[in-house]
């Protein structure tokens, strides 16, 4: 079942590492407003941190959008990370633990996928990356 179109969307442009902090604060605030518990707020902030850093490191410029989505009776927080950077040639490797083309632990994408409920990544080499992640609120 497709989630309904989001409401209350907020966007943070990501250009430098300080924007990573602004993006995760934006996400945490929305999570708190939506009634997520503190552990889920931390997971959402952490997921945004990883996705926003990927933008700074690999694309240089992009944005993080957070919004409320509804599916039937349940409500979720959706994170979309978009950039128009070089894209990811090998999505399978990028999602594997410990794989990195940068100087990192290689846990950003696979780790983020583990801490959210729904995860989707699309990339066309040369045209950028779009990652969509949703955390559903526990009933």
């Amino acid at each position: 079942m497709q989630a309904q179109e989001p409401v209350d969307s907020q966007i943070q442009a990501i250009r430098r590492d300080a924007d990573v902090i602004s993006a995760r604060q934006m996400g945490r605030r929305l999570a708190e407003d939506m009634g997520f518990g503190r552990p889920d707020q931390a997971l959402i902030a952490t997921a945004i941190s990883e996705l926003a850093r990927n933008i700074v490191v690999y694309a240089g410029y992009g944005e993080i959008e957070v919004s409320v989505v509804r599916q039937g009776h349940r409500q979720g927080l959706r994170i979309v990370a978009r950039d128009r950077g070089p894209g990811i040639a090998d999505l399978g490797s990028a999602l594997a633990d410990g794989y990195s083309t940068g100087n990192s632990l290689g846990l950003g994408l696979p780790g983020t996928r583990r801490i959210v409920d729904d995860f989707d990544i699309r990339s066309t080499p040369g045209e950028g990356v779009e990652v969509t992640a949703v955390k559903w609120r526990r009933q």
Binding site: L107, T112, I115
Partner: peptide, 14 residues
């Protein structure tokens, strides 16, 4: 390390 932070780290694989 705060409890929520610890949980996120473990789930992330850190």
């Amino acid at each position: 390390i705060q409890p929520d932070v610890a949980l996120s780290m473990v789930l992330l694989g850190l």
